[in-house]
Every structure is written in structure tokens, then in C-alpha cells.
Amino acid sequence: MSETSVAAPADLAELRAMLSAVAGPINFIGGGTDMLIAGRPMPAVGLLIDLSRIAGMAFICADDGGIRVGGATTVAAIAAHRGIATRLPALAEAAAQCGSVQIRNRATIGGNIANAAPAADLVPVLVAAKARLGCIGRDGASRELAICDYAPDRGFLIAEVILPRDGLLPRSAFVKLGPRLDLSISRLNIALLAEFQDGRFGDVRIAAGALGPRPLRLRIAEAALAGRKLEHATLRDFLAALAADVDAAIPGRNSQAYKRRAISGLGLDLIAQAVGLSPRDQLFEDVVQ
């Protein structure tokens, strides 16, 4: 017989008290898509805490400052939120491409991060946006971590995702490559945040998933775009830099050659989306010839 017990706290105060009182293993469940869809087994022992009924964990605040998203906010709510679509279009786009309608209606942003899948769609955008995580520890106390410092085995619950104002650049885009058009798990995904004015890039941040155990910044590609005019030479250097980032991330991997080629097409689509051009624009067509 299973030794797992289940609790469903009503609010954050009850949750904090529960965390500080329990000595054994604790697991959290929000949307539970991995258990329902992927068949991940229930924890064999310890306390399983249902986050879906906790008041104050599902919200979106996109004001004139930064953006704050509750950890139990569904991916569907993020995809549909006008404020996010205006302030950080890449996050809305990544959410809209995450799984099926049914999955998006259950999956949460906290779960997408905590699951720590290399191909998680929301995480590259959050990395590029310099997101911070408002977490609750086993002692019930609050902590704030940079998303790049988060590790699921540290036992922190993600209560909210904080996107600071200085991390939100005026242009953003997200693209992915999967094995089929619908319900695809990314074989490669890329997010870009950038300043772009009068045909020239300013600050640029790019992050990619499915190139390693966790999404990572593509520093060589960032440097190839930053401060440069959008023209053929820039795009050619950008594509070469993307390939170099792949080589640095997965040297000797069987998928290296494939992803070096695949990232070029995704990279051009990413730039086109960010600057508001068609990927069939002559500028991009000339580069791939």
C-alpha cells in the first residue's frame, strides 16, 4: 500500500505552515500533466501537496513595471493575456505553442520550470528575460532566485515568476522545431529579446532549449547581432554564430550536425518575427541562397 498522503492547502499561509511542519519527503502537483499524459508514477512515499486550490498562486500582473506571474498560473492563461502579448510577445507565443489545448489548460508555468525538461517551451523566454523566481523553502520562508540558479532537487516551491522591467526589451520572438506540427515536443527552440530601432540592433539576448540539460544563453549569436544593422552581412555572421553556439553546447553529439543546420532556419524565422518582417522577405531569401 502506498505511504503517500495528499494535502490541499487553501492559501499560502496554510501552505507555509505545512512545509515547516513536515519532516519527510514533500512533492508538489499543479496541473499534473506528466502524471496524466506522460504516465509518470505517483510518489511512493511522503506528502503530495496539491497547489491547484491555493488562493494567490494563479495570477498575472503586467503593469508599467515588470511582469509577475503566479506559479500555478496555467499556460493557457499566459497565452491569452493581452498584457503579456504586448509587453513580452515571445512568452505568449511560447505558451501558445506548448502542447495541446488540453495540456495548456492544465499545465502551469511553475511546473514547466520545475519539471526541468531540456525542451521546456517557456523557459528559454524566461532565461532571455532575466527572470527571477519567488520561491518558498521547506522552512516556509520566502526566497528569490535567478532562474538560472534554480534546481528542482533543492526542494523550493515556485510561488511566482518575476520578470523585472530592466529585463524586458522592446522586441521579442520565440520559434521552435518539433517532429510534427501539432503537440510537438521541441527538438530545438529559441527565444530572442532585443532592442531594434532604425534598422539596427541594440542589446540582444538569446536563449535556446534542447541543446543541453537546461536552456542556455547563445552568447556568440548575441554578439553577432548586438549593435549591428540588419543587413546581409549581419545575418550571415549571425547564422555562423548560431552554428558555433551549437558546436560549443553539444560537441560530438550525434545530433550536432542536424542541429547546426536546423538552427539556421529557426534563426532567420526568429529575426523575422522579432523585427516584423516575413521570413520570405528578400533579405532572408538572399542569405540562404
Results as ranks from 00 to 15, higher is better:
2 S>M: 09
5 S>W: 11
8 A>I: 08
11 D>E: 06
11 D>G: 13
12 L>C: 05
13 A>C: 10
15 L>A: 07
19 L>P: 01
21 A>D: 10
22 V>C: 05
22 V>S: 13
26 I>D: 02
28 F>Y: 05
34 D>S: 13
37 I>C: 03
37 I>F: 05
37 I>D: 01
42 M>N: 06
43 P>R: 08
44 A>W: 00
46 G>F: 10
53 R>G: 15
55 A>C: 09
58 A>C: 04
66 G>P: 09
68 R>W: 02
71 G>M: 10
73 T>V: 01
73 T>C: 14
74 T>V: 02
79 A>K: 12
80 A>G: 01
80 A>R: 13
81 H>L: 03
81 H>C: 11
85 A>N: 13
85 A>F: 08
88 L>K: 07
89 P>M: 09
90 A>S: 10
92 A>S: 14
94 A>F: 05
96 A>V: 05
97 Q>S: 06
97 Q>C: 07
98 C>H: 08
99 G>H: 02
103 I>M: 01
103 I>N: 03
103 I>H: 03
104 R>G: 00
106 R>N: 03
108 T>C: 07
111 G>V: 15
115 N>D: 09
115 N>I: 01
115 N>F: 01
119 A>L: 01
122 L>H: 10
128 A>I: 02
129 A>N: 09
131 A>G: 03
139 D>F: 04
139 D>N: 15
139 D>Q: 14
141 A>S: 11
141 A>W: 04
142 S>L: 15
144 E>V: 15
144 E>A: 13
144 E>Y: 14
146 A>T: 00
146 A>H: 08
147 I>F: 11
148 C>Q: 15
150 Y>Q: 11
151 A>I: 01
151 A>K: 14
152 P>D: 00
152 P>G: 05
153 D>S: 14
154 R>N: 12
155 G>I: 10
155 G>H: 03
156 F>R: 06
165 R>G: 01
170 P>E: 13
171 R>V: 05
179 P>W: 07
180 R>M: 00
181 L>E: 12
181 L>G: 12
182 D>G: 01
185 I>W: 12
185 I>S: 13
186 S>C: 05
187 R>F: 09
188 L>F: 08
191 A>M: 14
192 L>D: 04
193 L>Q: 15
194 A>S: 06
198 D>S: 12
202 G>P: 06
205 R>P: 06
207 A>G: 09
208 A>K: 02
210 A>K: 03
210 A>C: 14
212 G>R: 01
213 P>K: 13
213 P>T: 10
214 R>S: 14
215 P>V: 00
216 L>G: 10
218 L>F: 03
222 E>G: 00
224 A>Q: 03
225 L>A: 02
229 K>S: 08
238 F>K: 11
241 A>G: 00
248 A>M: 11
250 I>M: 11
251 P>K: 12
259 K>M: 09
262 A>V: 06
265 G>D: 11
268 L>F: 02
268 L>S: 03
270 L>P: 01
272 A>V: 04
273 Q>N: 05
274 A>R: 06
276 G>Q: 11
277 L>T: 06
278 S>C: 13
280 R>Y: 12
281 D>V: 04
281 D>N: 12
284 F>G: 04
286 D>A: 15
